[in-house]
């Protein structure tokens, strides 16, 4: 190693330049690998075969579509159930965002600030519950919903209500990251407020919450995006009731069909773009909070 430092200045520079360009090459190749599929998806959503407005490009020997059209998007919003699905998912995720964030933060605040007898027990229960496959309880949940008339052959709004309950019901178990954040907020702040006569609920509302913007945004972002990506729970509860589908279930059904009538493939691409674009923008805007959320928990863990 010592020889490196004795080399001439020019040698050092050349070596650095070589390693730098190697890094640039690797990064370029990798980012092409990561970006290309996304570009291909967007192109597919506009692609069509010449002379046939609804002739799919999927399965044609060309890699890129030969002609472009906006027909798929028009069809998507006028002739399919996609707008309903989109609205369903939006309602579910907005409701989940509010409920889950509230549950998670309440739990995290309790675990961070209060010391009571059953505290460790509840923490251990939380750890244990997290280790069962989430889907395992699904069958029972389905029967519970069936029992109270929210699943099976019922109106769409009831099914949507059921999904909201499933997604946000157990949110309190994900309190760990937020608790890590609350732990970092100095306790002397609460104590000062307590001395001034504030109750614990006032401390929570007026001191903790305003100081916790990053973690609120993180929790809200996570619970808002979850219903857009979840397939397993939604498909199990909704079964064949396509009027209450979320986008994930609906689009999966299309691509599962795509082996046969290929036109669904381009519709899938168009639908996927419609789902991905807003979520991506939201995510990029709030990226800072996301990183803070994950690493915050990790650094403190």
């Amino acid at each position: 190693m010592d020889y490196d430092f004795k080399k001439t200045n020019g040698g050092m520079k050349r070596r650095k330049a070589i390693s730098k360009s190697a890094i640039y090459t690797i990064l370029t190749i990798l980012s092409i690998c990561w970006i290309l599929p996304l570009i291909w998806l967007i192109l597919q959503s506009f692609g069509m075969e010449p002379d046939a407005p609804y002739q799919s490009t999927y399965g044609s020997p060309d890699i890129l579509p030969s002609h472009y059209t906006v027909n798929w998007y028009v069809k998507l919003f006028t002739e399919t159930e996609f707008p309903t699905w989109y609205l369903n998912t939006l309602i579910i995720s907005l409701a989940c965002m509010v409920l889950s964030t509230f549950f998670t933060l309440s739990m995290a605040y309790v675990m961070s600030r209060f010391r009571f007898k059953s505290r460790k027990t509840i923490q251990n229960i939380g750890l244990i519950l997290g280790m069962f496959p989430g889907f395992m309880s699904m069958v029972a949940i389905y029967y519970i919903f069936k029992g109270i008339g929210l699943a099976g052959n019922v109106e769409n709004w009831k099914q949507i209500l059921a999904l909201i309950m499933v997604y946000s019901g157990s949110a309190a178990l994900g309190y760990y990251v937020s608790k890590g954040f609350f732990d970092t907020v100095s306790k002397s702040l609460d104590e000062a407020a307590r001395i001034d006569g504030a109750t614990n609920s006032q401390v929570f509302r007026k001191i903790m919450l305003p100081l916790s913007k990053p973690i609120i945004v993180y929790t809200a972002l996570m619970s808002f995006t979850a219903p857009w990506g979840d397939f397993i729970f939604a498909s199990f509860i909704l079964k064949e009731n396509s009027g209450a589908y979320t986008v994930a279930v609906g689009l999966y059904r299309w691509i599962a069909m795509a082996e046969i009538p290929a036109q669904w493939y381009n519709l899938f691409a168009a639908g996927a773009v419609c789902v991905a674009v807003p979520i991506t923008i939201l995510f990029l805007l709030l990226q800072r909070y996301f990183v803070e959320g994950i690493t915050g928990g990790a650094v403190k863990g």
Partner: peptide, 8 residues
């Protein structure tokens, strides 16, 4: 790729 819903 993180931002895009996983199922997509």
């Amino acid at each position: 790729t993180i931002a895009i819903p996983q199922f997509v």
